[in-house]
Simulated scan of single mutants.
Amino acid sequence: MEIGIVGPGAIGLLFAFYLQKNEQDVTLYTRTVEQSEHLNKCGITCVQNGMRETVFPRVSPLENIKNETHDYTFIAVKQYHLEEILPYLQAEKRLIFLQNGMGHLHLLQQIQGASVAIGIVEHGAKKENASIVHHTGVGSTKFGLIHGEKKQFEPLLPAFSSGLFPVALENDWKRIMINKLVVNACINPLTALFGVQNGELLTNPSFHKVMKQVFSEVMGIVGDLQCGEYWERVCTVCENTAHNISSMLTDIRNNRKTEVDAIVGYLIQEAEKQQKSVPTLSFLYHSIKGLER
């Protein structure tokens, strides 16, 4: 099966590693020629439970994707890069988007001429350098159909045969996206603002109280009555990833743009539509925007 992956970030490297390891025909697309040359030389190394393994998929600059066709193409760039990436993908027939947040759904619904799915990734992944990714937490990936036929994506599932990379097609994918959005909104911006690992949101009483305030505002927006179940999920993720540094904190420390617009910004927009006041989320949003470089 010929599979394209756009974006050599932590998730892009992780998907490329496991698909290539399962003997799929993978091409990873990078922004620059220098990135592709480095990855073609070094391969992709995945570190999991102290074990290291390297695979060698093809790697090519993004501009070359227009000359190729793939059975499936994964887009693993940050949400704020999507609009500049989409023109390169006009020939692709099956697209799977792996972004955090929900602010991009309206953009995906406008794509014509292709079947479109989203992938909700629950793995922990941390990029050590351009060619090494740490698989820090085994989760699952759930695919949901934006438009097209479900049967078009069913042949993709056997491409992920590893027990460390379970996948499934979900009908109620929006609920799963909301679940992940709640977790991301409660953890990522707070760890970025406070400069702490995920677990400190549980062990520090003051941070824990702020996280509850954020959670309360988020649940008021998403309108789900199962607050106890969602709160338990947030705390479980904090506990299971206690020593992890969130992607948003990593972005702040590396002077990169964050995904705060895709996560907190989206929630604020939804609150405005519902005419609800969300002072804590607003404070969080502007605080992170102020820290961005």
Rank of each mutant, 00 (worst) to 15 (best):
E2C: 04
A10F: 04
L13E: 04
Q20R: 13
E23Y: 11
E23R: 15
Q24S: 09
D25R: 14
V26E: 01
T27C: 04
Y29T: 08
T30Q: 04
E34H: 05
E34W: 01
S36E: 00
N40D: 01
K41N: 07
C46L: 12
V47L: 08
V47Y: 02
Q48K: 11
N49G: 08
G50V: 09
G50H: 13
P57I: 02
P57K: 03
R58V: 03
P61K: 06
N67S: 15
E68L: 15
D71H: 14
T73S: 11
V77I: 08
Q79K: 05
Q79G: 05
Y80L: 00
L82E: 01
L82D: 06
I85Q: 06
L86R: 12
Y88W: 14
Q90S: 12
H104T: 00
Q110D: 09
I111K: 09
G113L: 10
G113H: 08
A114I: 07
A114L: 05
A114D: 12
V116M: 10
A117R: 14
A117V: 05
H123N: 07
A125D: 04
K126R: 10
E128Y: 06
N129M: 05
A130I: 06
I132Q: 04
T136L: 12
G139Y: 12
T141K: 12
K142S: 09
H147L: 14
G148N: 03
K151D: 13
F153A: 13
F153S: 13
L156I: 06
F160S: 10
S161M: 10
D172V: 09
M177D: 06
N179D: 15
V182I: 15
N184R: 12
N184V: 07
N188A: 04
P189I: 07
T191H: 10
G195R: 10
G195W: 11
V196S: 10
N198Y: 10
E200A: 07
L201S: 13
L202W: 13
P205G: 06
S206Y: 14
K209V: 08
G220P: 02
V222T: 15
V222D: 14
C227S: 10
G228R: 15
G228T: 13
Y230T: 04
T236C: 03
S247Q: 08
L249A: 06
I252T: 01
N254S: 02
A262G: 09
A262R: 07
I263C: 08
V264P: 00
L267A: 03
I268N: 05
E272Y: 03
E272A: 02
Q275V: 01
V278C: 12
P279W: 06
L281P: 06
S282N: 10
S282C: 05
F283D: 06
F283S: 13
L284V: 07
Y285G: 00
H286R: 09
H286Y: 07
H286Q: 11
S287D: 01
I288L: 02
L291R: 01
L291E: 01
R293P: 01
